[in-house]
Each structure stands twice: as C-alpha cells, then as structure tokens.
C-alpha cells in the first residue's frame, strides 16, 4: 500500500519534490497504520477485559474463604463481601474495576490484600530478565540453527538439526529444568539452583548466574520453533522465481541468500516471535516453580488455584496488553521487511 501511495504522489508533484513528498507519504502511511493499530488495540482490550471480568461472576468465588479460614461463619462472609463491594450490581462492579484499570489500579488481592499493580511491578524485573534472556538465547540459537539447516538443506547437517529441534521441542519444561539443576547446580556447582538476586543488589554477576539456568530451560521451545520456522521459510523463499532470475543475472548465491532470501523468508519466524514473548513472560509457570522464582507465570497459576479472582484478572489484563502490543510490534516490523504484509492489518 505504501509503495502505491508513493508512486502516485511522485507523479502528481513531479520529479523535483519527489524526495520530500515520498517521505511525507511514508510518514502518512505509517501514521495511518499506527491509528489502525490503536483502534485494534482498544477494541481487543475492551472486549478482553469484559470477558476477564465475567470470570468473577462465572466462578462464584468470594474472598471470604481466603481470609477467614476457620472463622468463616455466614455473617462474617456477608460482612467481608460488603467490604469488598461484591454486593453491588455486576455492571457497577465492572465499571469500578475498569475505571481502576485505565488509571493503572488493578485492585487488591483477595489472598493477601496487597495492591495487585505493585505485586505485578515487583515481579516485572524477574519475569523480564528471564524472558528477555530466554528470547535472546532463542533468537540467537534458533537463527543459527535455522539458517544452517536451510543452507545445508537435505544434507546430514539439516537432518541432525531437525532431529535436535524436534527432540528439544517435545521436552516438558520441568524435565529440562530439573535436568539443568541436576547437572549445572548439584553436580558441577556452576550456577545456583534457585532464587533471584536483583541487578541493583548483587550486580551483574549474581543476577546473571541466577537467571541463566531458568532462561536456558525456558528458551528451549523458542530455539526449536524459531529454527524450524526459519528453515522452512528460507527454503520456500529460495525456490521462488526471482532467485532463479537473480542467479541467471549472475548474482552470487551468497548475495542472493543474505540480501533477498533471508529478508523474504524470515516472515513466519518473526510472526512466531511475536507470539513467543508474551508466552515466555506468562507461560513460565513450571520453570518458575522449579527455580523458586516469583514471576508472572507462577503468580497467575497460584492465584488461579487459590481462587484469588482480582489477581487473576490483573495478570490477564497484563497479558492482554502484552499480546496485543507484541503482535502490533511484529506487524510493524513485518511491514518494514516486506511492505506487502501491511494488507493484513
């Protein structure tokens, strides 16, 4: 779409102002894209929070059993529910809740009465450290493996890499986690087996040594997925007619691969990456449990099993924001890589 605009406006304004107007056109199309993205974001966010809020009504849970334990008489339960505003009509509860969300207030946990926004913020450093490093490992190893497999397609190298990625992708995270602890913590004593030290507490060394094993455990699936998607994407792209054309024109196969095939063949891997990061942040339940880390995944799982509805809703709101934001980000990247993909948004 962007290229059509550019062409038209170049014709209209004539050659002299072509540079300026084409830049203006690019800016305009980017703005239009950003505007559309915001509309998508707001709509999805609104619908998803509505569904999230409905969870409370559907679950029929109450904070009483979490707080009163052996003192949960029917009168005490009623008093507590009144205190939490649970005796209000549902639509009013939703409005109160949604009003809080847009101001960054996710309410208080039924389990410990703590501010959920603060609880999530305090976990951000842990979850982002681990997911970030896992993503780095995933992208690096995945790209190296995927590109190698595609370059040496159908040889033993390709088959070995495919076997490895298949094996790694089916390993359950707790097996990887426990295995890594057994080897690197208990046996070799290289890394600590659990816990987390913030960057500002111990510096880079302790921080990195604590997040290394969980990140590695978490990255396995990303490595496998990225490698496989990249391999398939690259092989498909290398069979396109323009590759043959470029070869006939005498371009070196290296230049064709790095300059054209990689650019066109990396789309699927990039799309997958967009889905992967929110998954790494929120889906690390088992890894976080194995390594005793207070991250988002474990928080979500524990809150759900305790029936702490506001906490679960808080995590879901965060997840909605992350998923939608990352998808938009990847879409924007894809548009930069291959403008044709803008048609999708």
């Amino acid at each position: 779409m962007a290229s059509i605009h550019t062409e038209r406006e170049t014709l209209a304004y004539g050659g002299a102002s072509a540079g300026l107007s084409s830049r203006w056109a690019v800016a305009r199309s980017t703005l239009a894209l950003a505007f559309r993205s915001i509309i998508v974001f707001v709509t999805v966010f609104f619908l998803a929070t509505l569904l999230t809020f409905a969870l409370q009504g559907l679950s029929g849970l109450s904070p009483a059993h979490l707080q009163l334990s052996e003192s949960a008489t029917p009168e005490a339960i009623a008093a507590l529910e009144h205190e939490w505003g649970l005796d209000l009509p549902l639509w009013q509860q939703y409005l109160n809740w949604f009003g809080g969300i847009v101001q960054g207030d996710l309410g208080r946990s039924w389990y410990n009465g703590a501010d959920i926004s603060l609880l999530l913020t305090s976990r951000a450093a842990i979850s982002l450290s681990i997911a970030g490093l896992a993503l780095l490992i995933g992208v690096t190893l995945g790209a190296v493996l995927g590109i190698t497999a595609a370059k040496f397609q159908t040889t033993w190298i390709d088959r070995a890499i495919t076997t490895f990625t298949t094996f790694v992708s089916v390993l359950p995270p707790f097996v990887v986690g426990i295995g890594l602890v057994a080897i690197f913590a208990v046996w070799l004593n290289w890394f600590p087996s659990a816990g987390y030290v913030p960057l500002d507490r111990g510096g880079l060394g302790p921080w990195l040594s604590h997040i290394w094993l969980p990140s590695l455990a978490l990255s396995m699936e990303a490595v496998a997925d990225i490698a496989r998607q990249l391999r398939v994407g690259l092989i498909q792209a290398s069979r396109e007619n323009y590759v043959t054309g470029a070869l006939v024109r005498g371009l070196s196969s290296e230049r064709i691969f790095w300059g054209h095939v990689l650019r066109n063949g990396s789309g699927p891997a990039l799309t997958m990456l967009g889905m992967k990061f929110p998954n790494l942040i929120g889906g690390a339940v088992v890894t976080e449990a194995v390594f005793g880390l207070a991250g988002y995944g474990r928080f979500a799982a524990d809150s759900a099993s305790r029936g702490d509805v506001p906490a679960v809703q808080g995590v879901l709101v965060l997840a909605i924001v992350l998923v939608v934001a990352f998808n938009l980000l990847v879409n924007l990247l894809l548009v930069r890589l291959s403008p044709a993909s803008a048609r999708g948004i």
């Binding site: 707790f174 426990i178 602890v181 057994a182 913590a185 208990v186 004593n189 600590p192 087996s193 659990a194 816990g195 449990a289 194995v290 390594f291 005793g292 207070a294």
Partner: peptide
C-alpha cells in the same frame, strides 16, 4: 525468608546452599 521452589527442588536448593 523466601518463597520456596517446587517441592521436588527443595532438597537441591538447600544442598546447593541457596537456602
């Protein structure tokens, strides 16, 4: 006082000196 890791990893974490 820290949140304990999964029950299966408790021994490993004390053995390696984390707790």
């Amino acid at each position: 006082l820290s949140a304990a890791p999964d029950a299966s990893q408790l021994v490993a974490s004390i053995q390696t000196g984390v707790y």
